[in-house]
């Protein structure tokens, strides 16, 4: 623990001044614009087959079309709903289980070998089986997404319980805390940052599994948009689908970072 300092000029580890948020925004706009311009020049020069690589204008046009006919919103909504459902199930299962395993050696001893065997199996490998068991509809996809998000949340939650500092437990006991107070005010609080990080990693995993599941079997969603475009040689729609997946993933991660920042205000000086 080091005392916090309230220096105004923030510097990196080598002592160089960090960029302000305006400068950083400027650089971000410049780099993205640069890539778009390069892409535009590259395609309009006719060096590549336009069917294989559409121009940015074409992708933009297909964005406008799909916004107008409502299909984009439908796909985004379908994907978002799935990922959130799967994530919520994972959270509801992994956090209590991680707490139980963190608190009880018996529970841990029973479940750990099983989980260690399951853990190396990539969720994507379970998609065919899930389709057989739970059908081709929503349920199989949501469950596979939940499965993907489950392990990062569980493992981080368990790790959090190992981080409880004995001196905090002693301090609480000397202030009159009983076991349930210590659990609520020390153990859970100590593990909480880890649970939050686990949730964010789990969300990233949920997103990967979502797209894979949609590519394999679905009738809506951004993954479907991409695989459907393949059959119609609509690379512009594939690019649109990929860009939307990128944006959605970025937004979800940002949202969770913001939740993390608010819940863990005490961590940053």
């Amino acid at each position: 623990m080091t005392p916090s300092s309230t220096t105004t000029a923030r510097t990196d580890v080598l002592g160089a001044r960090l960029l302000g948020s305006r400068q950083r925004a400027l650089l971000a706009v410049a780099s993205i614009t640069g890539v778009l311009v390069f892409w535009g020049v590259f395609t309009s020069a006719g060096w590549v087959d336009r069917v294989l690589l559409p121009s940015p204008q074409e992708v933009f046009r297909s964005l406008l079309d799909s916004v107008r006919d409502g299909s984009l919103l439908r796909h985004v909504a379908a994907s978002l709903l799935r990922v959130l459902e799967g994530f919520a199930i994972a959270l509801a299962a992994a956090v209590p289980l991680g707490i139980a395993m963190g608190v009880s050696r018996v529970v841990r001893g029973i479940l750990e070998p099983l989980l260690e065997l399951l853990r190396p199996i990539p969720p994507i490998a379970l998609i065919p089986l899930a389709i057989l068991w739970f059908g081709i509809d929503e349920l199989s996809k949501v469950l596979i997404i939940a499965y993907g998000a489950f392990f990062p949340i569980l493992l981080n939650t368990m790790a959090g319980f190992r981080e409880v500092d004995l001196v905090h437990v002693r301090a609480a006991r000397a202030l009159g805390a009983k076991r349930h107070h210590i659990f609520r005010d020390v153990v859970l609080r100590s593990a909480f940052p880890f649970i939050v990080v686990g949730a964010r990693v789990g969300m990233g995993m949920a997103f990967i599994v979502l797209v894979a599941a949609e590519l394999i079997a679905s009738s809506a969603g951004l993954g479907f948009l991409i695989s459907d475009a393949r059959y119609n040689f609509r690379t512009d729609q594939m690019f649109l689908g990929m860009a939307m997946i990128g944006l959605l993933g970025f937004a979800l991660n940002k949202a969770l970072l913001e939740v993390e920042r608010r819940l863990l205000k005490w961590k940053s000086p």
Binding site: M1, D165, V167, H168, R170, A171, A172, R173, A174, L175, G176, D185, V186, R189, F192, W266, K267
Partner: peptide, 17 residues
């Protein structure tokens, strides 16, 4: 431990949360 014996630790042991 009991509340009638208060403890102050070298490493402070404040609850950071």
């Amino acid at each position: 431990p009991g509340a009638e014996r208060g403890v102050v630790f070298q490493e402070y042991a404040l609850f950071p949360w």
